[in-house]
Amino acid sequence: MSDNWYMGNAADDADQHRGWLLGHFIASETPGSGIRASNDVEVKWGIHPAGQQRPEWTADDQRTTLLLLVKGRFRLDLTVNSTVLERQGDYVVWGPGIDHSWQAEEDSVVITVRWPSLTS
């Protein structure tokens, strides 16, 4: 079987890597994971119950990030602004040097895409 394709379920696969589906931290030697190991991009399927939060701020992240709301109500605090994503499809993109924290105001599902996939 070819190792340059993969089919799965985001909720099932996300349990293995704290929600992350693609990225440098997925071992390419793990069966079925080769195509998901990437130094270029990270993709996360985030399921967050109401009240769950990341109260600490990221520290000097040097990646670009996209956060896309699938369902729920999700507050994103950036060092430059704060916003609440509340309508399906709402999203925020921010660049290197902008730190963030977040809180799920309702049960929420979000997709996060970061690039590049940095190991440090």
Rank of each mutant, 00 (worst) to 15 (best):
S2Y: 05
S2L: 06
W5R: 14
Y6H: 14
G8C: 07
N9Q: 12
A10S: 09
A11R: 09
A11Q: 13
A11F: 08
D12N: 02
A14D: 02
A14F: 03
D15M: 05
D15Y: 02
D15W: 04
D15E: 15
Q16A: 15
R18G: 02
G19I: 01
G19T: 02
L21P: 11
L21I: 14
L22F: 13
H24M: 03
H24P: 00
H24K: 05
I26F: 05
S28W: 06
S28D: 10
S28L: 01
E29Y: 08
E29K: 13
E29C: 07
T30S: 05
P31G: 02
G32W: 14
G32N: 10
S33C: 08
S33F: 08
S33D: 08
S33K: 12
I35G: 05
I35H: 02
I35C: 05
R36T: 14
S38D: 10
D40R: 00
V41I: 15
V41M: 13
V41G: 04
E42K: 03
E42F: 01
E42T: 01
V43Y: 03
V43G: 04
V43W: 03
K44T: 01
W45H: 11
I47D: 04
H48N: 12
H48F: 08
A50N: 03
G51T: 04
G51N: 06
Q52A: 10
P55C: 01
W57K: 13
T58L: 09
A59D: 15
A59L: 14
D60W: 00
D60N: 08
D60T: 03
Q62I: 11
Q62V: 13
Q62W: 01
T64C: 05
L67D: 02
L67V: 13
L69V: 00
L69E: 04
V70M: 07
K71R: 13
K71V: 08
K71H: 11
G72N: 03
R73Y: 11
R73A: 12
D77H: 13
L78G: 11
L78I: 12
L78Y: 04
L78T: 12
T79F: 03
T79K: 11
V80S: 15
V80Y: 00
V80T: 15
N81L: 10
S82W: 02
S82M: 05
S82C: 05
V84M: 10
V84S: 10
V84A: 10
E86N: 14
E86R: 14
E86D: 15
R87C: 02
Q88F: 00
Q88S: 12
D90L: 06
D90N: 10
V92C: 13
V93I: 15
W94C: 13
W94P: 14
P96K: 14
I98F: 06
I98R: 00
I98G: 04
I98V: 15
H100N: 12
S101Y: 02
W102K: 01
Q103G: 05
A104F: 04
E105F: 04
E106G: 03
E106C: 09
D107T: 09
S108P: 08
S108V: 09
V109A: 06
V109E: 11
V109H: 08
V110Y: 08
V110P: 01
V110R: 08
V110Q: 07
I111W: 02
I111F: 03
I111N: 01
T112Q: 13
V113K: 02
R114Y: 03
P116R: 00
S117Q: 09
S117M: 06
T119M: 08
S120D: 15
S120E: 15
